[in-house]
Design a protein around this nucleic acid. Structure first.
Length: 209
DNA sequence: AAGGGCATCAACCGCCGGAAG
DNA sequence: GCTTCCGGCGGTTGATGCCCT
């Protein structure tokens, strides 16, 4: 079977990977595909874990405060996305990089009145448009109402409920950070109704009323 | 309603540095 | 000191969904 060039991870693959990492730890990535039975490269497994499945990842919309931090540190550090992400709670380097290219670069190009000149200069930082507050953004806290799991059906937010329901200890009313199926709910944002899945999984299921 | 263009973001690729042998 | 392996990183691409006409 020929793989497509960009093969999205399925919920089942996510479960396999999370289970493996929980049992063996997040190391020796080259062994993970073979030992876990995944048809992926070790790098792909690592990437999936680090950017989507790892506990504590914040996949909500970037706040104005986070924007300010990204702009500030990009001016200081240049395109060192991992270093910039380290200053943001729960953000990944890939997420920061994407956000920069899709939102901030355009915004700053317009504000600064040029399009081609790079913004990041580690020696002479350009005049910042935003004032950077001294304290990093606090971790987002999500409220997880006890919504019955069966009401979460395939097709809502694109998540395949039955696959995650097979995971142990699943139940509504638990709290945690994005972990597994959140990757399939790209519109997830604070204030939405979620299910929780221990240790740190939640699933977007629509807006609270 | 359809389809073309655009925006967004997940995923891959290639390179680099450090650790281990 | 050299080689190999692995993890980490930034750049880039491709898939998908949304919006506009």
């Amino acid at each position: 079977m020929v793989r497509p060039k960009k093969d999205r991870w399925t919920p089942d693959e996510d479960i396999v990977l999370v289970s493996y990492v929980q049992e063996h730890g997040a190391s020796n990535w080259s062994l993970v595909p073979r030992n876990a039975g995944l048809n992926r490269s070790g790098k792909s497994c690592r990437f999936r874990w680090m950017n989507h499945l790892r506990p504590g990842i914040n996949r909500g919309k970037f706040t104005h405060h986070e924007e300010q931090i990204i702009i500030h540190y990009h001016a200081l550090l240049g395109n060192r996305w991992a270093d910039i992400a380290a200053h943001l709670t729960g953000r990944t380097d890939n997420g920061v990089k994407n956000y920069w290219h899709t939102h901030l670069k355009k915004k700053l190009d317009i504000v600064n009145g040029h399009v081609d000149e790079p913004i990041g200069n580690p020696v002479a930082a350009p005049a910042l448009v935003y004032q950077v507050p001294p304290v990093p953004a606090p971790a987002l806290v999500y409220r997880l109402p006890p919504v019955p799991a069966p009401s979460f059906a395939p097709g809502r937010e694109g998540f395949d409920y039955p696959s995650i329901a097979r995971a142990p200890s699943f139940g509504p009313g638990r709290e945690g950070f994005a972990y597994l199926p959140i990757a399939l709910a790209p519109s997830f944002a604070p204030g939405r109704v979620v299910f929780a899945y221990p240790p740190n999984i939640f699933i977007s299921a629509g807006h609270e009323s």
